[in-house]
């Protein structure tokens, strides 16, 4: 009987294995979450490199060929004694700096093909947004070289329909696109859904029109970062309603601008 049992187990496992094998044989396409990479004007090289590494290993699909194989040059490790890409990129084409060379390889890959390789690389500037492209360049430069990509390299993009959804975003953006205009921050954070300010907004929470006379700048800052730290008289029932997330949504400059703006409302 155990022979029969083994046979049955074999048939079942064999069928499962066959189906799994077939599904793994075909090219694998994963449906990624569309991500808009927003890099502000004051983006640091470290932020660019970090974002570029993500693109390189993820949505860019670079590692399919630029891994350890023979399809394309290795970028992160030594290649025929010339060092990783950051070291050799400036010496590939005469007259082209490292940055120019890397951008050309992504924008027009067939313009210069490293000897010994086939011109099989797709045009990456069509697949990636300018921010992603420059982040990748910064990442590649960081592999043994110095990063000289700055925010001014990234062409300002008009927002197109292809960039749907917020989806987190990266870098040090902050509310309202990083703007330090307090009115824009108040607008974007939705403060007026509860607070009243200069005659606008709801009356659920304390009126902020004269908040500067009641609280110091330090107290306002503390209140925004940790809303339960102090509760205005008469509003005890509503304690905990104000979201604790505003501190994480703003960058320091924005928070400071907002605090000073409110503190000036005496």
């Amino acid at each position: 009987m155990w022979v029969t049992n083994l046979k049955i187990v074999g048939v079942v496992l064999g069928t499962l294995a066959l189906y799994t094998l077939i599904a793994n044989e075909i090219p694998q396409v994963q449906s990624e979450v569309p991500q808009t990479l927003t890099l502000g004007t004051n983006v640091t090289p470290e932020q660019l490199v970090a974002a570029g590494e993500k693109v390189f290993n993820g949505i860019g699909g670079c590692t399919t060929c630029h891994g350890l194989g023979t399809r394309a040059p290795n970028l992160l490790t030594d290649e025929t004694g010339t060092g990783p890409i950051g070291v050799r990129c400036g010496k590939r084409e005469p007259g082209k700096s490292c940055k120019q060379y890397l951008f050309e390889s992504l924008d027009n890959p067939t313009a210069y093909v490293v000897p010994g390789y086939q011109p099989i690389m797709p045009v990456m500037t069509k697949q990636l947004s300018p921010e992603q492209v420059w982040a990748v360049i910064a990442f590649l430069e960081s592999q043994g070289g110095t990063v000289d990509v700055t925010a001014s390299d990234i062409p300002s993009t008009t927002s197109t329909a292809s960039s749907t959804g917020g989806g987190g975003g990266g870098g040090g953006g902050g509310l309202a696109g990083g703007s330090t205009d307090p009115k824009a921050i108040i607008q974007a954070a939705g403060c007026l859904a509860c607070h009243k300010l200069e005659g606008q907004g709801q009356v659920i929470a304390p009126d902020l029109t004269h908040v500067g006379s009641r609280r110091t700048a330090d107290s306002i800052r503390k209140k925004i970062l940790d809303p339960t730290s102090s509760i205005a008289k008469g509003y005890e029932k509503l304690a905990g309603i104000m979201p604790k997330t505003f501190g994480a949504m703003m960058n320091a400059a924005q928070l400071e601008a907002l605090v000073q703006y409110l503190a000036a409302h005496k």
Binding site: N24, I26, Q28, V29, Q30
Partner: peptide, 9 residues
Amino acid sequence: ATPALGYAS
């Protein structure tokens, strides 16, 4: 992200 067919299988 929705995984590819290989992982799903």
